[in-house]
């Protein structure tokens, strides 16, 4: 079968297509269900984005609804919520990154210093455990700890907090959101660093030791440079997601009393689009978010390529 491939060079596109289909029709048949699936559930909705530029009415459909240009975007940018949503989205991302990025690295480094293999294994096993717990359960536990006489509220009142249940306080939302994320993902996020640490060449430590470097110096001059490229790639990847705070956990956690700090663009898209059925406006807001996301992601990847010669794809 593969011998035919060599003579395909100077053929026209139509002829090449014919030969390709003749040789590989089975392959394309296997690909067909996947193409159909993604087409229906991922690409067909993209046509629905047209709604963002229309005054969409269910009766008239996407093709029949009135075209209104950028007016939904204008409404969003001038709405009193715009700055609040943008600020909340960026702050949750930024503070999240500030804690949830370095801590898994520190955790991996601490684990790397443990000599007792069994202890190390137990710690790792326990640290991955929260990853398997659902968001609903995590938020449920958070509600239990954050209620008026819950653990976190009690601890907070030891430090002078008197505002009642922390779970319904706008001041506490970000801390609780980021803290519980950290609890759930610290172990999981450390896996890649643990494997990067295991890949550092042991002879480098040997050499450093002969040069008289203690453990701390070795960490500074051997370990960290050894995992620096992993750190940089992952940091850039995370920066690329700075506009992408998901709605699933937010809408489980927030309430009217915490909207002020909790409401992000994606949760607003859900509330306006699904609960209020304002389809066009919600789609417009979502499109803004997706485009902003994509721009940040491509910029991050571009920088990554420049800095490290390792692009994400």
């Amino acid at each position: 079968m593969s011998s035919i491939k060599t003579v395909t060079k100077k053929k026209s596109f139509g002829q090449r297509l014919k030969i390709e289909i003749k040789n590989h029709w089975q392959m394309y048949l296997l690909a067909l269900p996947v193409v159909l699936y993604f087409f229906i559930f991922n690409y067909a909705p993209m046509f629905g984005i047209a709604m963002a530029f229309e005054k969409y009415q269910v009766k008239k459909g996407i093709l029949g609804s009135q075209f209104v240009g950028l007016s939904h975007f204008q409404r969003f940018f001038t709405s009193p919520y715009f700055w609040r949503l943008l600020k909340n989205t960026l702050l949750i991302s930024f503070y999240g990154l500030l804690f949830s990025f370095p801590l898994p690295i520190i955790f991996a480094l601490c684990l790397n210093e443990v000599r007792n293999g069994k202890f190390k294994k137990v710690v790792q096993t326990i640290s991955y455990l929260p990853y398997f717990i659902s968001v609903v359960v995590v938020v449920s536990i958070l509600f239990d700890f954050g209620k008026a006489n819950g653990l976190i509220t009690n601890i907070a009142s030891l430090f002078g907090w008197s505002g009642g249940a922390v779970i319904s306080s706008a001041k506490w939302f970000r801390s609780l959101y980021i803290g519980s994320n950290l609890w759930q993902h610290l172990g999981y996020n450390s896996i890649i660093f643990i494997s990067a640490l295991a890949a550092v060449d042991p002879t480098l430590y040997e050499a450093a030791r002969i040069d008289g470097a203690n453990r701390w110096k070795q960490t500074l001059h051997v370990t960290l440079p050894g995992i620096a490229s992993t750190i940089i790639v992952l940091l850039i990847l995370r920066l690329g997601q700075i506009m992408g705070v998901g709605y699933e956990k937010i809408i489980l956690m927030y309430g009217p009393s915490t909207y002020e700090t909790a409401d992000v663009i994606s949760s607003y898209v859900y509330r306006v689009g699904i609960l209020d059925a304002d389809y066009s406006y919600s789609t417009a807001v979502n499109l803004f978010n997706s485009l902003a996301n994509m721009i940040v992601l491509f910029t991050a990847n571009f920088i990554s390529r420049k800095v490290n010669e390792t692009s994400i794809w």
Partner: peptide, 22 residues
């Protein structure tokens, strides 16, 4: 084909359009 698959990770129609397809 690879591009077709990977692109679904970068961009999507969003909540409401997906809801309407389903």
């Amino acid at each position: 084909f690879a591009l077709f698959v990977v692109f679904t990770m970068i961009f999507n129609g969003g909540l409401v359009p997906t809801f309407m397809v389903v």
